[in-house]
């Protein structure tokens, strides 16, 4: 591939334009196109094998396992954190539900207690009222009984007074006291 280079090879009769040192420089490499200079191939391949071998060893044994471990650890960490957050959320939800249940229970209990108290008080009042009523009724009936006995006693007195008065009247009119049996008959007849 030793081709003349148009930019360095002097055109015929134009030697004066070329810096002399430069011509020597190009000539030192015999004008060959450096990438195709076969004399360096073996050396380049050896250095390539050494450099790339070293790189491959570093990547295979150190770098890639480490990066993989880092990425894996991060993924694990993220997953664990998300799981934890999820667990905490579930816990919080459960706590919220428990709170609401407790609140509802407490309200129900309060209502029950109020109702029971109300019922008890009502029952007590009713008992007292009934007792009072019974007492009053007893008093009333005893008073009525007293009135009746008094009335009967008074009525009994009325008969004897009427008998005495009738006997006195008859005695005054006839001068003679009526027979008690006749008097009693007469009293019974007028009593009705």
């Amino acid at each position: 591939m030793a081709q003349p280079n148009p930019l360095t090879t002097p055109p015929p009769g134009a030697d004066t334009q070329i810096v002399p040192g430069h011509v020597e420089h190009t000539e030192a490499h015999s004008g060959a196109f450096p990438p195709f200079e076969t004399s360096g191939f073996l050396s380049q391949l050896i250095w390539l094998a050494l450099a790339f071998g070293l790189l491959y060893y570093l990547m295979d044994k150190v770098a890639l396992p480490r990066i993989q471990a880092i990425l894996h650890a991060r993924a694990e960490r993220l997953r664990a954190d998300l799981d934890q957050a999820q667990a905490m959320k579930t816990e919080a939800d459960a706590a919220g539900i428990a709170y609401e249940t407790a609140l509802r229970d407490a309200q129900g209990k309060a209502r029950d207690i109020a109702q029971t108290t109300r019922n008890e008080l009502a029952a007590e009042a009713e008992t007292k009222r009934k007792a009072l009523e019974a007492e009053l009724n007893a008093k009333l009936s005893s008073a009525e009984a007293t009135i009746r006995t008094r009335t009967e006693a008074a009525m009994g007195n009325v008969r004897s007074i009427a008998g005495e008065a009738a006997s006195a009247i008859v005695e005054r009119l006839t001068g003679q006291a009526p027979d008690p049996a006749t008097l009693n008959r007469a009293l019974d007849a007028t009593a009705h």
């Binding site: 280079n5 930019l7 360095t8 004066t16 334009q17 070329i18 810096v19 430069h22 420089h25 190009t26 490499h29 196109f33 450096p34 990438p35 200079e37 360096g40 380049q44």
Partner: peptide, 14 residues
Amino acid sequence: MAVTIDPIEQFELK
């Protein structure tokens, strides 16, 4: 003043 450049020189092995 003459200026020359060799665009291939950069690929030379040193």
